[in-house]
Amino acid sequence: MNPISLFFLAMAMSTDAFAAAIGKGSSLHKPRFSEALRTGLIFGVIEAITPVVGWGIGQAAVRYVENWDHWIAFGLLLALGLHMIYNGLKHEDEAEEKASQHSFLILAVTAFATSIDAMAVGVGLAFVDVNILVAAAAIGMATCVMVTVGVMLGRVLGAVVGKRAEIAGGVVLMLVGAAILYEHLTAV
């Protein structure tokens, strides 16, 4: 995977966490940078671990699907991208209860929920030539930065930008999947 694709993958993987961070930031009264950074670090670490777990699962299956690996990576990223776009477009009818403070457990559960797609991406990355540690570090750092910024912007921007960020992330994931497919098909 080339560095540009890796950059866009890392950014796409962090957009759902960014959307969640905007929600977390909007539920706090004037969030401090220390709270935003703490939230970013929790999300970043979890988001970096999950693609490695997925990659390990994918490595176990790679010898069985080697001839179709690029199509599997494309299909996974396409499905995840479409799911993110769907979530970004659907309307939330029920009002969410605002938290008075964010505990580690609540942040960790939220971070894990937003990183499930990173685990699936990790499975897809097992089928392409990529250094998983570099990819995971890029995803974790991008998530840390975007979540920190998201918490700080949350109070000002609210849920509107969060939904748009999730839609943009879905589009980028689909483009990364198309780039993987294109790279493989043109290399043959």
Rank of each mutant, 00 (worst) to 15 (best):
R155I: 11
L76P: 01
G44L: 03
E96V: 12
L37S: 12
P3Q: 07
V109A: 14
L37Q: 04
G88F: 04
D93K: 14
S26D: 10
A17T: 09
I116Y: 08
H184K: 08
A138Q: 03
S115Y: 04
K30R: 14
V134K: 08
L105D: 04
V130H: 08
A10Y: 03
M152Y: 12
G140D: 00
F104L: 15
G177S: 08
E94P: 03
V176T: 10
A12Q: 12
R32V: 00
V134D: 11
V171Q: 04
M141F: 15
A136W: 08
K98D: 05
V45Y: 08
G162Q: 09
P3W: 14
G44K: 12
A12L: 02
W55N: 06
M146C: 11
G150V: 06
S5C: 03
R32N: 00
I167R: 01
V147G: 07
K90A: 09
G54H: 02
A36T: 07
V147E: 10
R63C: 07
A79F: 08
W55E: 09
A73V: 01
I49C: 05
V156M: 10
V52Y: 06
I167P: 02
A168I: 14
F7Y: 02
G162L: 02
M141P: 00
V188F: 07
I139V: 10
A113W: 12
F33A: 14
F18Y: 14
A36I: 05
P3K: 07
D129K: 13
I42D: 01
D69V: 06
V53W: 10
R32Q: 13
M84I: 01
K90Q: 09
V145I: 14
W55H: 09
L157H: 00
L78N: 04
L76K: 13
A168W: 09
A165R: 14
F43R: 09
M146E: 11
A111E: 00
S27Q: 15
F112Y: 09
S115D: 04
L78I: 10
K24I: 15
E92A: 15
T143C: 11
S14T: 06
G88N: 01
A10F: 01
V161H: 04
V156Y: 13
R155Y: 11
A108H: 08
E35T: 15
Q101N: 11
A142Q: 13
V62G: 05
L41Y: 10
A48W: 06
G158Y: 03
I85T: 04
N87E: 11
G169N: 04
A179C: 02
E166M: 07
G154I: 05
S5M: 05
V121F: 00
R155W: 14
M119E: 12
S34Y: 12
G177V: 01
L76W: 04
E183G: 12
D16A: 02
G150Q: 06
A73C: 02
G56A: 12
E183S: 15
K30Q: 14
I42M: 07
D93N: 12
V52W: 01
G158M: 14
I72V: 15
A142N: 11
I116Q: 14
L181A: 12
V160Y: 12
V188Y: 13
F104S: 02
A20P: 03
P51F: 08
F74K: 10
N2P: 13
E47P: 06
D117P: 05
N67S: 08
S34V: 06
V151R: 06
G56F: 09
V62Q: 14
Y182N: 10
L175P: 00
